[in-house]
Amino acid sequence: MQVAGVFVCHHLLAQAHQQVVIIDDMGKPSHLDIIILILLAMLLVPLWASLDVGGGSMVSIHADGGQWLYPLDQDRTVEVEGPLGVTTIQIEDGSARIISSPCPTRSCMRMEASMSPESLVCLPNRVSVSITGGPEDVDVIVY
């Protein structure tokens, strides 16, 4: 058994040694070519797998005047008009907040939304802000 093992080992070594053949002609494929081609093809697999079809998280704003959509990862301030006046939404550091609101209680300004399906609602001024897309591995959210 051991003898057979040694024989196999020796045979593999001999094969490995044979693979390093330096050819003169760049027009003939070598073993190294095949290895490089296989590596290049393998490089494509994670690339296709990482292809982000849905894109990142988006901030979706609904108001009387229509719907607005902004990427969550770009900082900006958005003003939308409601029946009571202007509601100002700030997108900063990956989360959205309402920073000024014409409504009486201003309860909408106490929260922030940073991942799907969190949302901010200002009922009196009829403005809603929700996060869509992005990672969706949340099982349940309890308020």
Binding site: V20, I23, D24, M26, G27, S30, L32, I34, I36, L40
Partner: peptide
Amino acid sequence: FHRLAGKRLSYYSLSPLGSM
């Protein structure tokens, strides 16, 4: 790649490498 591998690499792999 041509300098690293010398003539052990042929057009068969140098061309895809350049192209990619």
